[in-house]
Amino acid sequence: MIELTLQFLSFMASALLILIGIAGMLFLDNLIKKIIAFTLLSDGVNLALVSLGYFEGGVVAILTPGTSVAEFPQNAVLIFGPGIVLTNIVIGVSTTAVLVALTMVLYKRYGTLKASKVLKGERK
């Protein structure tokens, strides 16, 4: 039987967030809701990356004056995942800003937030 550890549960939560995010981005019709779904998706990816590096009984991967330098490499949680997450949070904010700006411009032109109306092709 699978043990319900924190790591397992956070993987489940991240899978749920990713699924909800993708479903929301694909199937919801409101542009703002699509953007909120995107923030959920990127939260899910972040959670997956952080829980990847975690293991039971590890220590925080920040070298504070009290910790012993010799045992630090074995005990510290993996730092590369959180490194990516920090960047992913920043990229998520800038992507959201671009999406909101484009949505505002398109709303001014069409007067609606419905993706099915706004994003309809007008090619000749």
């Binding site: 924190l6 790591q7 956070s10 939560a13 939260d43 972040n46 959670l47 952080v50 829980s51 590096g53 975690y54 590890g58 220590v59 925080v60 991967a61 920040i62 949680v77 959180p82 997450v85 920090l86 949070i89």
Partner: peptide, 16 residues
């Protein structure tokens, strides 16, 4: 999510 990050030993990410 920030609380979970804290519990997963990434306090800097939790704050961010």
């Amino acid at each position: 999510l920030a609380f979970i990050f804290q519990a997963l030993l990434a306090p800097d990410l939790g704050l961010t």
